[in-house]
Design a protein around this nucleic acid. Structure first.
Lengths: 346, 346
DNA sequence: ATGAAAGCGCTAACAT
DNA sequence: ATGTTAGCGCTTTCAT
């Protein structure tokens, strides 16, 4: 297993040419090299199982063909899709991805940014972390371009963003419920501390306002992104005898909990009460087929982020004027799993 | 953003010492360097935001502190836990992880092995792919140590394995059902083409045999790892009037489907029929609280794999005698989510 | 059409 | 206690 690596030097000697020639041939920059030597060199390289040393190459070219992917936690089903999208786009252009879990921890984020710049990655895709308060101390030593996903911070080195229009998304979702015949739509929010959550709430309010539907603040409950909370909140609505016929939820976990509570209380979903989730966690469909959700295009977000980054890296032609931050805003999509029409037969 | 990187050369000049001195100080190999110069150099490095160039370092040291992680698909909830475990262990020792999705595709696997050896990763963690028939062509150019997870191939460069005792796992699972009072345990298997699946079936048979329980082959159904199949198979058991009071399933998706079919047919789970899953996909507990499962310790597998690899990499002291392949066999654990006692009250 | 040579930024003997 | 020097394996002008 401890095979001594073959270098271009050895190949050059064996082929009786210079290392420059070998290098050019191996990199397809052999415009002016005879077919004869070309084939000879290629043949030898193949026979000797030549593997280029990318360290040496990168040292010269200042490119590693590696991208860093920083995210809170790959075990959270939100992220694998993003990671996969990024990887698929990256590997198309023969970039590799170094992945880093931060657990939403600022100091781990900073550590990773350091490590990635030391590793000389060509760029970083930064997926949202709840904590980060815009603090830029961790970026002092960072020298690589950054693409933001999902959250819009003001950070140094950011050259692009891939975002979702959350207001529009929940607006669309609530409108779907209205179109299905529901008229009294309650809202169970998760944490409301993030921009994302507030935008969603705003979309909900806007959809109602557009149809001149107004009802009090008792229709909105704020808690956390857990199914437990969904159950509690739904029960609370029932206990308080709020007159609602649908619930829009801050995310799918909440929705799953809400559906459970409603069913336990004897309601049929969606015939009696429509419930809609958001985000589409993995398996939401398996868990609760009655659930229609607003799906965030995670895979595409990862894909587009990698694309933005690679374009920026390779567009060395436009020198310094990468001043404008490219922003991609993706649409969410409605995943209708089962008719959610009010009063529909089972 | 286009900051000119600071090199040790510049720091050396500014501090009026040699690059060797700077290098030693920066690498804590400064046993014999005066506090004065030491502090001066460190100070300058900090002020100038010095970032070491790991390419240059690796070129000399032949170490990249990077590990490759090859797996079928990070979106499959089986893998994020492995990835996370590996990353956690790796980052403890300041190793980074390059991750690669193969979609169980042999040629993608080979491509990645090539890319990773070119990137000079210090080792590769290879998580199981369904396809690979032991073909070793893709490893011709590979020069790095490999740790296998979950599947036991005969591959070149393999220096370690982290496996699960599937026979024992299903043996334990079935015994649990028996201990709970069930006596007629059917088995719904997924694909049976893998060693893993066969081992699980064997454990099931062994558990029954140990208690002198014998019943015909009609108690075993073989299909695929999908909830759809779980439903179909469970219905088939009912239609065929098989006398069973519990079902052991090849994985959780199957179990979820089976529970669904049983409930639709009017059975109470687990009071009338006990159902047990395997593998514990993400959210299995949310989906079906009645489900008790045999959980594969994915996180730990990833963690241990990284550990094995790092130990091997850094144990340069034992030179060539790394002939023995280190094998770690982990136990699965029973995740009892809710009493599964036969006939228990709701 | 090909070769010579100068680095890329760093580490590691070996000197002093 | 610190400096000198020779590479690591490759790319890239600039010659020829």
């Amino acid at each position: 297993m401890v095979k001594m690596p073959v270098t271009i030097k050895e190949i050059a000697r064996e082929a009786e040419v210079s290392t420059a020639t070998v290098s050019m041939i191996l990199n397809n920059k052999d415009k002016s090299i005879s077919e004869a030597t070309r084939n000879r060199v290629l043949e030898i390289a193949r026979n000797r199982n030549y593997v280029p040393n990318t360290m040496a190459r990168s040292l010269v070219t200042k490119q590693t063909r590696t991208i860093g992917l920083i995210m809170p936690d790959i075990v959270n089903p939100f992220f694998p899709e993003i990671a996969r999208g990024a990887e698929d786009r990256a590997s198309l252009s023969r970039y590799s991805i170094i992945y880093c879990n931060t657990d939403d921890n600022l100091s781990r984020e900073n550590t990773y940014i350091d490590i990635l710049t030391e590793k000389m990655v060509d760029g970083i895709i930064f997926t949202h972390s709840a904590d980060r308060q815009g603090g830029a101390e961790g970026f002092k030593r960072c020298r690589v371009p950054i693409i933001l996903i999902d959250r819009d911070y003001d950070l140094p080195n950011v050259i692009g963003k891939v975002l979702v229009d959350n207001t529009k998304a929940s607006y669309t979702g609530v409108n779907y419920l209205l179109d299905q015949g529901y008229r009294k739509i309650a809202y169970i929010a998760g944490s409301i501390h993030t921009r994302t959550a507030m935008d969603r709430l705003e979309g909900y309010k806007k959809a109602l306002a557009d149809r001149n539907l107004v009802y009090g603040e008792e229709y909105v409950k704020i808690g956390e992104y857990k199914s437990q909370w969904g159950s509690e909140a739904a029960k609370a609505f029932l206990d308080e005898k709020i007159d609602f016929d649908a619930i829009f939820c801050g995310n799918d976990l909440i929705a799953i909990g809400a559906v459970k509570a409603l069913k336990e209380a004897g309601y049929r979903v969606p015939e009696d009460v429509g419930v809609m989730g958001f985000d589409d966690i993995y398996m939401a469909g398996v868990v609760e087929p009655a659930l229609t959700t607003v799906k965030q295009p995670n895979y595409e977000m990862g894909y587009r982020a990698a694309e933005l980054l690679i374009n920026a890296i390779e567009k060395t032609d436009s020198p310094e004027k990468i001043e404008e931050i490219k922003t991609v805003i993706l649409d969410t999509e409605l995943t209708v799993r089962q008719s959610t029409k009010k009063g529909a037969a089972q």
